[in-house]
Design a protein around this nucleic acid. Structure first.
Lengths: 123, 123
DNA sequence: TATGTTAGTTACCTTTGGTAAGTCAAAAGT
DNA sequence: ACTTTTGACTTACCAAAGGTAACTAACATA
């Protein structure tokens, strides 16, 4: 039963709130799904693939994902530096849920846009 | 192929970014999954069920969900007012993806917490 | 007359997100 | 010898989103 976890109780950390605190970070889903698609990637590859993320936001996003054990980081002692990011097993296990969301998003994009236009024009 | 949608292109709205702009809102997942569980609910019922959401954040969350066509709002002309919220068909179709995420969250909560502790103590 | 009920709104402050420029250390170009 | 490039970041600074507490409308009840 998931219901029990939904009501807020300050004595117990809620898994849904904990996950959504992370998933809700603006770039987390794009980083995870991009890594999931391409496997291991370097910092700048991710930066270019996603396109509109800043370097700052990419570093903070990757740090949080490492902290949560969803992404692993491998640094090579070279100059210029080389750093590779990969999904951990836990990250991989989250991936299908994220791609599920993405597929829903693609399928329902036009429905959402229609609804937004109607809502605005009804004002 | 979802890949094409992941790279940012300002001329086409990206479904993943569009959805995550909404899903990423701190309370959206909790509101949708609570409505999905209980069916129709009134404003204060949602407020009490979730527990730690403010009235302001509940109203802005519900407004955005209406705008996107995920939640419908029915107001009765009574005093004190009565307003009922329900998932639309589109909202219902999103629900399984959200409960999938929640189940993952419940199953992996301890793994995430362990990882966070290790990360912090390694500093 | 004061109090409660429901679904909000408003004013205000804090936290998060975003932009642009700077850093580091070495190799490669001129 | 001096400047530029490279990759993976920081830092300083500004804008947007989120949070809190108090206030509102309109009537019913004590």
């Amino acid at each position: 039963m998931i219901e029990d976890y939904k009501k807020f109780d300050k004595s117990i950390p809620c898994p849904v709130r904990t996950l959504m605190d992370r998933i809700g970070d603006k770039w987390v889903v794009l980083v995870i799904s991009t890594l999931g698609e391409k496997g291991t990637m370097r910092f700048n590859q991710l930066h270019e693939m996603i396109g509109d993320i800043s370097q700052k936001m990419l570093t903070v996003t990757l740090k949080k994902l490492q902290e949560d054990g969803l992404v692993s980081r491998k640094m090579y002692q070279e100059i210029p530096p080389r750093v590779e990011y990969t999904l951990t097993a836990m990250g991989e296990s989250l991936l299908p849920h994220i791609t599920g969301l993405e597929q829903w998003a693609v399928a329902n994009m036009s429905g959402i846009q229609q609804s937004r236009q109607q809502y605005l024009s009804a004002k």
